[in-house]
Computed example of a mutant assay.
Amino acid sequence: MNTQGLPKSMKALVLKHTSEPPTVQNVETPQPTLGSAVVRVLRVKVISYSREVMNGTRNYQFPMPLIPGFSAIGRVAAVGADATKIKPGDLVHMDTTIRSRDNPSDVFLAGVADGYTAGSKRLMKDVWRNWTCAEYCRAPLENLAVLDERRLLGSPGEGGLGYKIDDLSFISTLLVPYGGLKDIELQAGQTVIVAPATGPFGGAAVLVALAMGARVIAMGRNASSLAKLKSTVPTPELVETVQITGDVKTETEALAKFGPADAFFDIGPPEAYQSSHLKSAILSLRHGAKISLMGGYREDVAIPHVVIMHKNMQLRGKWMYERSDIPDLIKLVEHGILKIGEKAGSHTYGSFPLEQWKEAWDLAAEHTGLGDQVLMQP
């Protein structure tokens, strides 16, 4: 097979079992096949709950041994014979959400979880088992989005945005709320309630909604975190804040000061399934409003059914985002409409080699605010 200059072996982080820590090993370098490319991994975004996934605490299912990972920034090293656009040398965003080509409902998160269908589980086990915590990664062509390197990394004096490679990793965080906000067709000029808004994805939702032209009411438990969020965004005059107190009446009265909202975007963590914000936000919506549920709840949540029914509201669930959402969001970044890096309040706390996986995972668990990033650099 033509290796297109790829080395015979590479370093990779290998998880043999959730009861044992992963180890860095020399393994065979993957080769490009039809429909794929091999990418030299430059930066891997470390999700805040990586250690809980890999030690089995979250009970995510995936085949082992496994090279874990998440979305990444990389440079194409070799391509399959059917690649007509992507070429070696391209800087790319590698999306972790893999879908079956003949059944898009078979979907899973590469390097993290094998999904909910027999097809998704087989696809991860037999085809795309290993992911980005390695020097090289083989990925589906459709999961690679070519980035305008000159525009993104070029100097402002030459028409560039002056970002660094680390900054580009924030794209993967922004994609998640973009999927939900686009799914409910958020329009410029509308008002959207985002809750909780002070975590990594909630904060990103505020940035994305503003870039889409909306006004935002950000809800969160911590008043100082809400104040920091408002001071960080590029257009603070378009952000109002309401504290989650646990009392629906108090929250609803606070939300009412800003008038009926057009939409509600929920992205609460698993432990927030009984949070009061779910009800107070819905009670504060106008007739015909739209609701996007992207929270990671594992338990059933209570919603005001009669209000949703009488006000003709649309209630939509959304897991991740559509493939077509990726180039759309990247265009927002490349055009300078959606900021990343320091301009968006993003900060990278460290970029670690594979051997320091524990330090990376521990640090990511500590820093979960808006724009907080920990990266791995294989």
Rank of each mutant, 00 (worst) to 15 (best):
K121G: 11
V127S: 08
N130T: 05
P156G: 09
I171R: 00
E142L: 05
A118W: 10
K121C: 00
Y116D: 01
I165F: 13
L168R: 04
E158S: 15
L168I: 09
E142N: 12
N103C: 09
Y136A: 04
E158C: 14
A110E: 03
S100F: 12
S100K: 07
L144C: 07
K125Y: 12
T117I: 10
T117K: 04
A139C: 13
E149M: 07
I171L: 07
W128N: 01
S120I: 10
F170R: 05
I165R: 05
M124S: 09
G162H: 10
V127H: 12
P104Q: 02
E135Q: 11
S169G: 04
S100D: 14
Y116P: 03
V146K: 11
C137A: 12
R150M: 04
R150C: 04
G160W: 06
W128V: 07
L152G: 10
L109K: 00
K125T: 06
Y163C: 03
A139W: 05
R150V: 05
F170H: 10
R122K: 14
D148Y: 14
R138N: 08
F108A: 02
A110W: 06
F170Q: 08
E158H: 15
K125I: 00
Y136N: 01
P156Q: 03
L153P: 14
G157N: 11
D126K: 09
L161D: 05
G111F: 11
R150Y: 09
E158G: 15
P156I: 04
R150T: 10
V146F: 08
A113Y: 15
V127L: 12
L153G: 07
S155F: 15
L123G: 09
S172L: 03
S120Q: 00
A110S: 13
P104D: 04
G111E: 00
E149A: 15
A139F: 08
L161M: 11
G115T: 07
K125P: 10
G115F: 03
R151H: 11
V107R: 12
K121Q: 13
G159E: 00
R122G: 14
C137V: 15
D166Y: 08
F108E: 00
A134S: 12
T132R: 05
E149V: 10
L152R: 02
E149K: 15
W131L: 02
G160Y: 02
S172M: 02
F108P: 06
S105T: 11
G154M: 03
P140G: 06
N103P: 11
D148N: 15
E149I: 06
S120F: 08
R129I: 03
R150I: 02
S120P: 14
N103F: 06
G119D: 01
L144G: 08
T117W: 02
